[in-house]
Amino acid sequence: MAHDVNIKAIAVLDSVLTAPVCTSLADLPPGRSGAVHDVRVRNALGDRLVELGFTVGAPVRMLRRAPFGGPVQVQIRDFVLSLRRSEARQIQVDVQGEPET
């Protein structure tokens, strides 16, 4: 019994550890890449973001953040976009790969 529980616990833990970490695009550290998980807002801004290419699974990469909470610069698919952090917060991203050293 106890053995079974342990195995289950390990399996759950394992899936948590290997599953991609989901975060908002605004919190993606510079240099890190991810895949779009979802655009949360259901309004004109959300529709606009999806039309620009933030579709589910699209590759996205944080290039840099402006200082003092300024806009962020990201590579989405094949182009570079500047957007404010408040907008970037609406985009959920599955983080991929290892942090750059």
Partner: peptide, 9 residues
């Protein structure tokens, strides 16, 4: 309205 500005190469 949001800033969504494409950075040209």
């Amino acid at each position: 309205a949001p800033l969504l500005l494409e950075m040209p190469p």
